[in-house]
Design a binder for these strands. Sequence first.
DNA 1: GGCCAGGTGATGG
DNA 2: CCATCACATGGC
Length: 281
Amino acid sequence: MTEYIKLNFTYDFGRVLDRLSMDPLISLNKGERYVLVTTGERKVHKVQATGTTESPTFLIEGTTNEQQLQTIKEIFHFNRSLEPIHAHFAHTNLASLFEEHRGTPIIREFSLYATLMKSIIHQQLNLSFAHTLTTRFVHTFGEQIEGVWFYPQPEVIGQLQVEHLRELQFSTRKAEYVIGVSQAIASGELNLEALAQRDDETITQTLVKYRGIGPWTAGSFLLFGLGRPNLFPLADIGLQNALKKLWATPDKPKAEEIAAHFPDWSPYLSYASLYLWRSIE
DNA sequence: GGCCAGGTGATGG
DNA sequence: CCATCACATGGC
């Protein structure tokens, strides 16, 4: 069935498509203003913008129940207004940044498992090679449904040997990480859907017990997997570079120098992170 | 050719 | 507990 959505806040879907188009595994059409969403339930949903940035409306195809519709709304930030966030940053030192990127939402990854796999694969790699590796991973072990690629299921990856991923040019360590985390999920020891109900701190403490998941990856899971609003990954090189540029300093700011602004930016640190990343893309 | 990349775990003090 | 280092490979 097709659902119609109308938002009562500024929302720039063009920017959303620009962002999503950086991921080679996502099918979208900028001209026709739609993206095909591949959820963890292995269903394809078409989300198409029909309105404007100031008066945003959307058509959502392929949902068969209310839960799926809610998932889509959460992925696209349709259920949370951006206005309070812009109002909050209007009187901070990031005001110009937020004005420049007005209406940019946090877009979540399409599945929690995919979030972890993608984050681990992307660790310490330049974006170009990271995309190559992720695409090989999905094309080799994933599944194509209705012409769209889905991430593999954890059961499939959990049964692989390190050599299988080495062939795709994974490092030995990265292969171990990906397989190990997949095994934990496949066995039921690690239940991401249940974990998602807990608070940020509990989720981080649970995830970092697994080899290959450190603070950065846990932060990515919270921010991009769950859309949590108050995350700022201090260790992230991209954010350090973005602030260096914004503040026009010769060196990257130290963690303490960045953290000093957290009181001003909270409880929306995630949006500060997101808009800073945008500023260097 | 050297340094870096949307880090992490192991090691040694 | 903190600083340092190996890891693995492509991009520039």
